[in-house]
């Protein structure tokens, strides 16, 4: 792929992942369950965890983010999958 970012050939031919990498490696390395703003970026409107195809982060980072999201869910910092749009309903309350 262009600009040396890792995406396998199979992926790029089937699905062109949006280059969403604005979050630095450092940010993910230092992230904890408390960084709700950061974790929200890896979650869909419904609260589902975004796949690494979309987030564009490495497998190790994706695993870490997923783990943190699951911890944050248990602490009611992030929703489990919701029927309504999470961000809207969250602001309304």
């Amino acid at each position: 792929m262009a600009n040396g970012k890792k995406t396998s050939g199979r992926r790029s031919s089937k699905y062109e992942a949006p280059k969403q990498r604005r979050i630095t490696k450092q940010q993910i390395e230092n992230a904890t369950y408390k960084d709700v703003k950061l974790l929200e970026k890896f979650v869909s409107d419904r609260g589902k965890i975004r796949s690494s195809l979309i987030t564009g982060i490495s497998k190790q980072e994706q695993a870490k983010v997923a783990r943190l999201i699951k911890v944050a869910r248990e602490l009611a910092l992030l929703p489990y999958v919701t029927t309504s749009s999470y961000k809207q309903s969250y602001n309304r309350r």
């Binding site: 408390k34 009611a76 910092l77 992030l78 929703p79 489990y80 919701t82 999470y86 969250y90 309350r93």
Partner: peptide, 19 residues
């Protein structure tokens, strides 16, 4: 105390909590 914030979902009918 970390913060007082809205919960992402209700817990025991509470919509807010002190973390």
């Amino acid at each position: 105390v970390w913060q007082r914030r809205k919960l992402a979902y209700e817990i025991d009918t509470f919509k807010e909590g002190i973390y």
